[in-house]
Every structure is written in structure tokens, then in C-alpha cells.
Design a protein around this nucleic acid. Structure first.
Lengths: 210, 210
DNA sequence: TTCTTTCTGTGACAAATGTTACTGTAGATT
DNA sequence: AATCTACAGTAACATTTGTCACAGAAAGAA
């Protein structure tokens, strides 16, 4: 069982894992599913067992700005942070590769924080790493120009999928960077001329240089 | 004693306050002091008793991008999040109005989290609100243009200082928005023409419209 | 005062990004 | 095959932002 809690969350104590298995509800969602919309009330914390989720910040005009990926062994920091208060979500979560998740009712969060040291540490570490990740996003948009941001975007995508082919249309990339399709096409073309990528329909191949 | 722990942190239990007074070290810093540099190891959590601190993200090129303010009754989320691991700081903290702070050794963080419910809740709430604040920063730079960001900056400043005069040079504002002085001058001039502000040397007066 | 520094304003230009409009092409559908 | 649709390329232009150069005003120092 390669996708067990034990393997994915190696720091969890046996008791914690037993508790999760007892109280959590395993659920599957297909790619494309919106797991959480901005403004919705959060009722569960989500542990990712399989697949991939992208977390977006939504603009008033309907923009979908990519913040980061969630992968197996990780959890949604936003949902954890909202604790028992059942706050509104500040983000949107979209499944981009069929996922299996473990849903944990928020009421249990506080309880587990006190009872399970390994849960406490996991939550704190999740906060910390997501905070850092968002700060890196700030770096990108505050200090870098679009061509650097595009490179970063492609690298991150290929890291997340573990391959060097980015199977996305220029339009999709543009949306997630909050720019226009033409700008992405233009910059990608320049990157191709610099020998960084090879362009095909619905697919960008990252060459070793990148 | 208007700046007592009890008044500033009304949700802290009496035992917690006693513990803080016993273990924390009260310190004062003058405006201009850099309390924390990017990359430094964090050894303390900081509770703000008086004054104001600005938190910045530093760019490789020396940029100082403003993230948010810390005010009396608040605490530095970054320092809390780094827990006992004594991680490196991802941000820079600068005193902008003489402060009195309470420094709390990081080792005590974990202990108090378990022992003091009110501390636990304060820490979680601090994480949550700072995360939200950084997400708002992302909104601004991802979705808005410089004139809107400048307006937001001025509003935030006047909220923080509780007055309608912003006593900063255009250069200082430009630095914190990571743009150039000329751009700020230009946009401020337009705002003045729209009747939103009145410009003086080293001072911008926000008019009611804003 | 005179000198000096800092701050502000502004024109002219450069570069980056956004927009419009149009083209062609690969795949899918019929 | 003929048609349709989504995707990609690109030229031309608008707008925003950044840079350079310079001038004058305000505050402080000598």
C-alpha cells in the first residue's frame, strides 16, 4: 500500500494514524473539481493522499492567480488555520490530477493539537512552509518581470509533475500568471529562440538548460 | 498603566500574563532600528507593547517591499512560526515609531502552546491574520496597477498612524512599493488633480474622499 | 546670507506589458 | 472530405511603468 498514511506522513505517531483512519473520511475527486471556492465556509481539513491540487487567489474580475501546489503528504494550510471558527476560505482549490484525500472535521483540529504531538508539529510545519511559499510568490510578482516569472512558473510545473513537458495551453498559463495569452506566446517564443524550450501544440518541452 | 499586557492582550489568562512577565524581557528600541534582518536566526518571539514596526520582504537587489505593520497588541507571526527550530528569518523588521517589546525565548513557545490555551489561540489567530494580510498583498501586486496600489498604501499608512498626514518622502514610498520615485511623484500629482490628496514637502495630506 | 543637500516636478524617451485584429494550423467532428 | 473549434503566431498600436536629465524649491548647515 504505497499511498498509506504511514508512508505519506512518516512523522505521524501510530495512535494519530489510527485516529485519522477512524475519524477521517477518505474521498476521491476527479481532475477539474473545485474543492473549495473563495468565500465558502471551511468545514474540513484536507490531507492529500494521491494526485495534485492547485491553490489560487481569485481576483474580483475573475482572475485565477496561482499560489502553489498541494501534493501527497501535504495538507491545506488555509483550512488548518481557520480552526474551529469555520472561517471563510480566502482561496480557491482546484484538482488538477485525480486526488484521494482524507477529510478531517475541523472540530478535531484543536483536540488533536493538544493530544498528538506529531499532529501539532505537522500543523506548525505546514503553516511555516506555506507562509514561506506565499512569500516567494510575493518576491516573484514584486521584484521580477514577466519573463522571469514565466520561467519560474514552468520550472515549478515541471517539478510538480516530475516531467519536462508542460501540457498546458498558453491561455491557461496566462490566466494563472494574470497576464494575457499574447504576452505568454511572445515570451515563450523568445525562450524558444534562446533554446530554453521547444514549443508544440498544448505542450511546452523544457530543455535541460532551464 | 495603559500599556500593560492585560490591556493589550485582553484574551491572555492571568496565569499566562504572570508567566510572560516572569520569562519575557522588556526592551525598547528607537525608530529606525532594524530588529531583524533577512537570513538572521530567530531566537525570540516578539510581543509589541508600544510603537510601530514595519515588516519587509527584501529583494536580491536590495529592494524593501512592505508587507505589513505590527502594532501594540500584536506579535511577529514569522518568529512564532519558526518555533524551536530557530529557523532563518524570511523577512526584515524595522522600527518606524519607538517601540517597547516583550521578547520571549523561542524555547518557551512549544511549552506555552501546550500549557496555556489563551496562548495557543493567540498564536493561531496571529498566523491566520498574517497569512490573510500577505494574501491581500498578493492581490494588490497581482491584480492592481500602481495607482491603485499607491492609494492602498496611503490608506494603510493613515490607518496605522491614525492620522491623515503621511509624513514620508516620495522616495521612501517608492522603495516600499518597489517602483521609482518619479512614478510615485507622477501618480501623486494625478491624485492631487483628482482632489484626493494635498501635497507638501515630506507630507501628503489625505482628503476625505479617500 | 551663502552654500549644500534633499525633495519634488516634469519632459522626453525607453522598455515592458496589454489590447486589437487578423492569420494559419492542428485536431476533432460531421 | 468538408467543417468547426481551440490553439498559436504576430503585427500594430495603446498604455503603463521605468529611466534619464535637468530645474527649481525647501530646509538645513556653514
Amino acid at each position: 500500500m504505497q499511498n498509506s498514511l504511514k508512508t505519506l506522513f512518516p512523522n505521524f505517531s501510530s495512535e494519530l494514524i489510527a485516529t485519522i483512519e477512524q475519524n477521517g473520511s477518505a474521498q476521491d475527486f476527479e481532475s477539474g473539481t473545485i474543492l473549495m471556492r473563495t468565500g465558502q465556509y471551511i468545514k474540513n481539513t484536507v490531507l492529500i493522499m494521491k494526485g495534485k491540487i492547485k491553490i489560487y487567489r481569485e481576483g474580483e474580475d475573475g482572475g485565477e492567480f496561482l499560489l502553489y501546489y498541494l501534493q501527497p503528504g501535504q495538507a491545506c494550510a488555509i483550512s488548518m488555520i481557520c480552526t474551529a471558527k469555520s472561517e471563510k476560505s480566502q482561496i480557491m482549490a482546484k484538482v488538477v490530477e485525480d486526488v484521494s484525500v482524507m477529510m478531517i472535521p475541523l472540530q478535531l483540529m484543536d483536540k488533536w493539537m493538544m493530544e498528538h504531538r506529531s499532529w501539532y508539529e505537522f500543523v506548525i510545519e505546514t503553516y511555516r512552509s506555506r507562509f514561506e511559499e506565499v512569500l516567494e510568490v510575493v518576491d516573484n510578482i514584486a521584484f521580477r518581470s514577466m519573463d522571469e516569472r514565466l520561467e519560474f512558473y514552468l520550472k515549478r510545473h515541471s517539478d510538480a509533475c516530475g516531467c519536462s513537458e508542460v501540457k498546458l495551453s498558453h491561455q491557461e498559463i496566462a490566466t494563472e500568471l494574470n497576464t494575457s495569452r499574447e504576452v505568454v506566446s511572445r515570451l515563450l517564443k523568445k525562450m524558444e529562440q534562446r533554446g530554453l524550450v521547444k514549443l508544440n501544440r498544448n505542450q511546452i518541452e523544457l530543455l535541460k538548460k532551464i
